[in-house]
Design a protein around this nucleic acid. Structure first.
Length: 611
RNA sequence: GGUGCUGUAGUUCAGUGGUAGAAUGCCCGACUGUCUAUCGGGAUGUCGCGAGUUCGAUCCUCGCCAGCACCGCCA
């Protein structure tokens, strides 16, 4: 037995016991006659102390005037004082109350007086400090990930991940969901993301693909009558990476039969609330707000609005979409930028009227960056002197007063107004809104604002090729009232779907839809997406065949587990919550993957590598 | 595929057209209660790689490589 206790459990009530601990040397503090070692394991830190009592000679002054024989000390220090950071050691000795307690440590009231110490394994000096605030950069930490994972704050991320996975399983299992594993070596499908591909040795020239999600399998489980399925499962997409995207990531994948959208939203809203409650003790007594895709785009310029703060869009021109009306408050006074714009839209930054020219110029610079590509911003501020805009030479105070009313503006507020093509301008204003939210500290990671975005369009059109793509995926059903348009291939842009996203704090946490469960409907969908019937049969024949054997109405959802955990951990970088993540270019810098393979392997697979 | 930023001691960074510094880590020493111990001393550099400009380049220019962030992409 290597240990009787962990480094996190000893308390004052244990004083007097003789214990054995094992762990890593966090830090050594050598005070001469005393040597303190912080011994660390997963459970905490316990101070162990080495005293050279046997060499002490009591002086005349009583306690506090010991004298140490330097020669004898040197002898003993030989082994003990050579302990370096991250040595693995085993120590035994009595637990005793400390002279000076450390209130910052759960074990701070006690220490273990070393009577025996064994070095189980020496360690090289680590390339960065194993502290909560490490001095190591990202790349180095990834290369030595096993050292990085020793840091308490990183370890806590995985404790959080574990607890969330347990709670998800508890909730779904209690709601009769069955956890079923689906294959990882599957068939490459078009549409959507690029597949990772695996060559087959036994079927030369043919390839498996790794699943982008278990989508078709979970639908087949519904056909099989499993009724409620879930899986916490790895998915793979060969696309460029971001802070919140890894080539392999984990989804909470779910599907239900005999349900309508409302049943699904309720079930998974329940799961979300269960997680909020069990992990963060946050209680949502009200239903999550719901917003249609159109509302989100018009009010926030994106399909995943961050509702931690306001600054909802208001337009100063009538909405350009068909059937919409509204008073035009800007056109016809000779200001070309607004006259020629399809849409003039802005946000009200409350309390920002005092911003300096330098600050507002910085906002203009921000939106002019190539990534955003806007031409500028018109400002209107309401200070003690009244309304003042950057376009005063075009607009009368009466004009400006009407703008202010439209935005419910108060003294002290600042309007930021942009103009141009409707969709593009909204997108740009969304970036500005989020930027303002950051600048004003309105995006507190400890505040959670969930919402459902619903009524997504079924299809979206590629600007360049004119081709239609499934917005969610090709198995999403149109709303029944729009279904005929799919068969007629008429007015496809207006077809809505019972598709929904769960958005928390401006992050898409998950989404899903009611699926097609009818062969003719699925065929119509594939035709709209530009598949020939042969193509559809080759790629998805198995699914359409299954639909002919009594497929129940069904639908489901999938949630990005890594994102959800990082959100609950108040961070944006999901790599902090993945034990062995990959870098920006999809490399694992620790094991150095991907890598070349032997010619023998290539030959077996019948593969020739170019170059 | 594109844009931007970064690359200097083990690490995190500062810096200069005349081959370099801080902090921390590391090593040595002192110290009777530390807990980011303290104090004293010490060692450490292909200034990412290659080419060009220059009398001379870590610094300027170009290319490449790597990392990060973003756009495209991510049903």
């Amino acid at each position: 037995m290597y240990r009787t206790h962990t480094c996190g459990e000893l308390r004052l009530t244990d004083a007097g016991k003789t214990v054995t601990l094992a762990g890593w040397v966090q830090r050594v503090r050598d005070l001469g006659p005393f040597l303190f070692v912080d011994l660390r394991d997963r459970y905490g830190i316990t101070q162990i102390v080495v005293e050279w009592l046997d060499y002490h000679v009591k002086g005349e002054g009583g306690l506090g005037s010991f004298v140490v024989d330097p020669a004898k000390r040197a002898e003993k220090v030989e082994t003990l004082a050579k302990l370096g950071r991250e040595f693995v050691v085993q120590v035994s000795g009595p637990v005793r109350q400390r002279d000076n307690e450390n209130p910052n440590l759960p074990t701070g009231e006690i220490e273990v007086l070393v009577t025996e110490l064994k070095v189980l394994n020496a360690a090289k000096t680590p390339p960065f400090t194993i502290e909560e605030e490490t001095d190591g950069g990202d790349e180095l930490r990834m290369k030595y990930r096993y050292l990085d994972l020793r840091r308490a704050n990183i370890r806590r991320n995985f404790e959080l991940r574990h607890r969330m996975a347990m709670e998800v399983r508890n909730y779904l299992s209690a709601h009769h969901f069955l956890e079923v594993e689906t294959p990882v070596l599957i068939k490459s499908t078009p549409e959507g993301a690029r597949d990772f591909v695996v060559p087959s040795r036994m079927n030369s020239g043919e390839f498996y693909a790794l699943p982008q999600s278990p989508q078709t399998f979970k639908q087949l489980l519904m056909v099989a009558g499993f009724d409620r399925y879930f899986q916490i499962v790895k998915c793979f997409r060969d696309e460029d990476l971001r802070q919140d995207r890894q080539p392999e990531f984990t989804q909470i994948d779910c599907e239900m039969a005999f349900v309508e959208q409302e049943d699904i939203l309720n079930t998974f809203e329940g799961m979300a609330k269960h997680l909020f409650k069990s992990i963060h003790e946050v209680e949502f007594s009200e239903a999550f707000p719901r917003m249609s895709f159109d509302e989100a785009m018009k009010g926030y310029g994106c399909d995943k609005p961050d509702l931690r703060f306001g600054m909802k869009f208001q337009s100063l021109t009538p909405d350009p979409s068909p059937g919409e009306r509204g008073e035009d408050l800007v056109r016809g006074v000779g200001f070309k930028v607004f006259d020629e714009a399809e849409l003039v839209v802005g946000i009200n930054a409350e309390g920002c009227a005092g911003w300096s020219r330098k600050q507002t110029d910085a906002l203009i610079e921000f939106v002019k960056r190539p990534q955003i590509g806007a031409t500028g911003i018109v400002f209107l501020k309401w200070t003690e002197e009244g309304l003042k805009s950057t376009v005063d030479k075009f607009y009368t105070p009466e004009h400006l007063q009407k703008w202010a009313e439209r935005f419910c503006m108060k003294q002290g507020d600042l309007l930021c107004i942009m103009a141009g093509k409707a969709d593009k301008t909204r997108k740009q204003l969304n970036e500005l809104r989020l930027h303002m939210g950051d600048l004003l500290g309105l995006r507190d990671p400890k505040v959670f604002k969930p919402l459902w975005v619903i009524d997504f369009p079924l299809l979206e059109q590629d600007e360049e090729t004119g081709r239609w793509h499934a917005m969610h995926h090709p198995f999403t059903a149109p709303k029944p009232e729009d279904a005929q348009k799919l068969f007629d291939q008429q007015d496809l842009g207006s077809v809505r779907a019972n598709a929904y996203d769960l958005v928390i704090n401006g992050t898409e946490i998950g989404g899903g839809s009611i699926r097609i469960h009818d062969r003719t409907m699925q065929e119509a969908m594939f035709r709209v997406l530009g598949f020939t019937d042969d193509d559809a049969r080759y790629k998805f024949g198995f699914l359409m065949d299954a639909f002919e054997y009594g497929a129940p109405p069904h639908g489901g959802a999938a949630f990005g587990f890594d994102r959800w955990v990082s959100l609950f951990g108040h961070r944006t970088d999901i790599r902090e919550f993945i034990a062995f993540p990959k870098n920006n270019s999809g490399r694992d810098v620790m094991i150095d993957a991907p890598s070349r393979i032997d010619q023998i392997q290539l030959d077996e697979l019948g593969i020739t590598v170019k170059g």
